[in-house]
């Protein structure tokens, strides 16, 4: 591989904090890697773990989920549920042999444009280190 591997990262961002934080990064002209494909959801607590599994099945090399800091949830406690749930998912993926670097979760508030840049850089760096993920791809296995 002479050309550097460009990972595909699917990011599920909560509408109220991280999505706005990513928006702030944009309006502030903060540059960050273009590998993330953002999907806006209303709350990190809305992220069904199957979204993650499905993303990995359909060609994502990494998944990033980001929401409001604890205590800041627009719906009071959605991110607390997400925290429990996604911790278990992370453990499960790791146990089945998925590289833990493919799964990241973060708290990024609407004012943290810089933190968003750092989180994305970390996620991209992790996914590059983990390499392309195609052992699980629907099209490669089933078709």
């Amino acid at each position: 591989m002479s050309e550097q591997f460009k990972p595909n990262i699917v990011a599920f961002l909560c509408n109220w904090c991280t999505y706005a934080g990513a928006d702030l990064a944009g309006t502030s002209r903060i540059q960050y890697p273009a590998n993330v494909k953002i999907i806006r959801v209303m709350c990190s607590g809305r992220v069904n773990p199957l979204y993650v599994v499905n993303a990995l099945q359909q060609g994502a090399d990494g998944v990033l989920i980001s929401g409001c800091h604890p205590g800041d949830c627009h719906y009071m406690e959605g991110n607390y549920y997400a925290r429990r749930r996604l911790k278990l998912l992370k453990e499960l993926l790791e146990f089945t042999g998925v590289d833990p670097r493919r799964f990241n979760m973060s708290w990024v508030s609407a004012s943290e444009g810089h933190k968003w840049k750092e989180v994305v850089e970390k996620a991209v760096e992790d996914a590059i280190a983990a390499g392309p993920f195609d052992q699980f791809r629907r099209r490669q296995i089933g078709w």
Binding site: P49, L50, V53, N54, R138
Partner: peptide, 25 residues
């Protein structure tokens, strides 16, 4: 459709991850 009806390693893995996760806790 969350998990395709096709029986292959990809779909089977999705099924087993979903099953195990739904029983977590």
């Amino acid at each position: 459709i969350w998990v395709n009806r096709a029986v292959n390693f990809s779909e089977n893995t999705a099924f087993h991850l979903a099953r195990a996760f739904h029983l977590a806790g």
